[in-house]
Nucleic acid binder design. Structure first.
Lengths: 349, 349
DNA sequence: TTTTAGCACTCTTTAAGCCCGAGTGCTAAC
DNA sequence: GTTAGCACTCGGGCTTAAAGAGTGCTAAAA
């Protein structure tokens, strides 16, 4: 569907202005934006056609026009001028991310926070999925006669611990054997490959200590599950409240919806690789109507892993936000890869 | 300052009703609440006097009356009827807390969440201060030729880890010695007693490994600091938005204020032991005007430790909330004590 | 055929005016 | 000291009027 040069500039100008002000845009405003190269009457005619084509709509007869979701889509895909990040911004981001480059979870956390702050919207991220990570090291550390801590490190640098209590006193010898056997069986293997049957089979391998170690094996299995689960992180929800596009009630409903992590996770999992803009109106969720999700996957080891993006009203500054998110996504990917490199062979870069 | 029986019941009824509806209360309403034992005219006279005494105020001439902060103070201290917790509620709380009784941080986290949910306000808590905790166990676990994880367990069951990177490859022997020496020096001692000088002096004690271990010692010191710091936790901020007493702008400002953890920590630190109700108007913070803080310290080992409480508008159901918070505080104290007991000698209860 | 100027028309927003009701304070009687 | 009665006050809600912004259409110009 071709629009013609002039209609395109009119549509682009309309979207630009609407993004800036949030109010219906009239023909006179556009006339000024195009430096009076065409008269408002011509623009009115074109706008009428754009309305008929489904790109613009009027809240009421005597108001200006508002871009539809279709207009935003076209704007994002073809019409807008991406504003590339300034040197300074890039350096700030690099500095921030480098400073937390030893803990994958903190990395994501800080990136999320920074994204929320710099865009003024809510940021959504997921931690690297443990699925593709390998078990790097398991330790069992006694902390009292009847309790021990299980300790797990993955190839991507994730460190997790879990307390495990025993029914009766357990000797340090049993725990040593347990650690040894667990490492022998699972080290170097994928986290995702550790299932209940594998763990259960350990009881036999532990010989005389098998029965006493059952609580530890249960805890180990739970720990693996917890570690493999990728977590959804939401930051800056409160920013949404400050936005004039959301009245408090809608913002509240939206935040409620986002806070239920599973639903958000579902939403993300349906998103293809690379950078995507998803409009709420395209999902079936009524709470998401009028909101938009700009999200990109970050890669680790050349494969798509987690997500990072922002959630806000349809009317966001896409031209600035999209390059920003892309930069975050590639930076995170790079840093995670470096971390994995360091962790696996100790060589820097 | 004596009020007399009747004025007291009138004031109590006014506060009760205002808490329930949030609207100015008129003399006829009070008449009904007192079962027509006195006429509305008499009540009007008394209310006029209560206004003169500073307990009630009128938004405008032709409206009912609203209790002042002084009235709330009197209500909380003398007038209200505490509503004790039902058996069922107690059991629910006990069940919830027991289920997370192996991790002090999760315990506080869950308690906070539950308190926020059941009151419908924001809950504020602080984790047990590591200050009074002892070092229970230190481990150093190599995870790559150039990196290791420091692992710290305290007497109150807190488990913390920190990654430490070395400039050059470090042998497992050096790490073993490091762990041994750290344990010898610090195990059983108070976390609060570990200062920079103590850690620095370790370089000498490590002999030939001293220099290589400097990054680990730095990380250890940081880890101790992080562990000793008691953290402020805020849950259910969004509940405040839903409350009709807060317009969105004020709620936003309040939440912003609360989210800056330090200021909240300052506020808490000025609170005496036991249960307290602090009115925002009593602090100098303009953001807190019209809000109230019900908070109690919980004890561990017989001494006041952290805080748990709720933040909401002046108009809260104190009669229900106060017993609830007290119950949470004593339960948390008990469970933390038990945890410390289990962790130190392995005996249950 | 396309663009532009002009104008009547539509529809929201804002302000002003008005009435209604809730609640008070006062007075006089009990 | 308590109560009934009544005039008075003041905010909330409703209606009406005016102002303003923007459109769509028509007819003329390019």
């Amino acid at each position: 569907m071709q629009l013609g040069k002039r209609k395109e500039s009119i549509l682009a100008a309309t979207v630009d202005m609407y993004i800036r002000t949030g109010e219906p845009v009239g023909s006179k405003t556009i006339e000024k934006m195009l430096n009076n190269t065409v008269s408002s009457a011509t623009i009115r005619n074109d706008m009428a056609e754009l309305s008929a084509m489904g790109y613009l709509e009027q809240p009421h007869t005597s108001a200006g026009r508002i871009p539809t979701a279709a207009a935003f889509r076209l704007y994002i895909d073809h019409l807008m001028n991406r504003r590339n990040l300034s040197e300074k911004v890039c350096r700030n981001i690099d500095g921030l991310l480098k400073s937390v480059a030893d803990d994958p979870e903190r990395l994501i956390d800080e990136a999320s926070q920074a994204l929320a702050e710099s865009t003024g919207f809510a940021a959504v991220t997921t931690t690297p999925s443990g699925q593709s990570a390998e078990v790097k090291k398991i330790e069992v550390i006694p902390i009292s006669p009847r309790a021990a801590v299980l300790f797990l490190v993955t190839s991507c640098g994730l460190i997790r611990t879990k307390v495990c209590r025993f029914d009766q006193e357990i000797g340090s010898q049993a725990l040593e054997i347990l650690a040894k056997v667990l490492n022998e069986y699972f080290c170097g293997g994928l986290l995702a490959d550790i299932g209940l049957p594998q763990v259960q089979s350990m009881v036999a391998s532990l010989g005389e200590y098998g029965l006493a170690c059952v609580p530890a094996l249960t805890a180990f299995y739970q720990l693996v599950q917890e570690t493999a689960e990728s977590e959804v992180l939401l930051k800056g929800q409160l920013n949404l409240l400050k936005h004039p596009d959301y009245d408090p009630v809608r913002a509240g409903k939206l935040i409620d919806f986002l806070t239920r992590g599973e639903t958000l996770a579902d939403l993300l999992s349906a998103i293809p690789k690379g950078l995507n803009v998803v409009f709420g109106s395209e999902c079936k969720r009524p709470e998401l109507d009028g909101t938009s999700l700009i999200v990109s996957q970050y890669n680790t080891g050349g494969r798509p892993d987690g997500y990072i993006g922002i959630i806000g009203p349809l009317r966001m500054d896409y031209a600035a936000a999209i390059p920003l998110i892309e930069y975050f996504a590639t930076s995170i990917g790079k840093i995670l890869d470096e971390m994995m490199g360091i962790n696996s062979d100790g060589s820097e870069k």
